[in-house]
């Protein structure tokens, strides 16, 4: 038990859940996008938080600690989703860049955001974490490297590769957009040039 919690009362599990549920939900929504079903991931985050609560030493703020757990659980979920068989950009005709007219207004913004998350869904989880944390959450490369426990250079490479793949997906560039090791439906193996 930490010295902090020997002096100050530990927050009750119910209070922890009630206080931080909106923050975790908001964060997961940003990670997985507005359309994703995040209820199960949300539950997994708090199951993990409640399980680890007795070991929380109070060295960081509780919200920072929960945010880190949220990232870890989200990363595991991304890995699972990434392993599921996916169709390639060829079938996403409605999402291809050239096929829609980017109209003015909020609806168009929402449509662009959906396209962005559809592209993010196809990224390797490590690249996705780098892009979401840097370009959506606004973290610096140093912060990402520290929170993910990986070298700064690695994070920079993953960010660059992730951005390139997103841009390729948005431009409907199938060869560039392919996930490493995945195949285009109807072909027997990976295509040449499928990785940057």
């Amino acid at each position: 038990m930490s010295a902090w919690y020997a002096i100050f009362p530990r927050p009750s599990p119910e209070a922890v859940v009630r206080e931080h549920a909106p923050m975790v939900h908001r964060q997961l929504r940003r990670i997985f996008g507005p359309q994703a079903d995040i209820d199960d991931v949300f539950q997994s985050v708090f199951v993990e938080v409640l399980r680890s609560l007795p070991t929380f030493a109070g060295r960081a703020r509780l919200s920072t600690w929960i945010r880190r757990i949220t990232w870890n659980v989200a990363y595991q979920e991304m890995r699972l989703q990434y392993r599921q068989p996916k169709t390639t950009a060829i079938e996403d005709a409605d999402l291809a860049l050239g096929k829609t007219n980017v109209a003015e207004g909020k609806a168009a913004d929402q449509q662009c955001m959906r396209k962005l998350y559809a592209a993010l869904d196809r990224l390797d989880p490590k690249e996705r974490v780098a892009v979401v944390m840097h370009d959506i959450e606004g973290c610096t490369l140093k912060e990402i490297a520290r929170s993910q426990g990986r070298p700064l250079q690695t994070i920079a490479s993953q960010l660059y590769a992730g951005r390139a793949r997103i841009a390729a997906h948005l431009q409907g560039d199938v060869l560039f957009d392919l996930q490493p090791g995945k195949t285009v439906a109807g072909t027997s193996g990976p295509l040449k040039g499928s990785t940057p």
Binding site: A21, P22, R26, L28, R30, C112, Y117
Partner: peptide, 16 residues
């Protein structure tokens, strides 16, 4: 597309 998508994602609060 990217500009709008990124801006919308950054501003998206996902209110519960």
């Amino acid at each position: 597309t990217l500009g709008r998508g990124l801006r919308a994602a950054q501003e998206h609060q996902g209110e519960l």
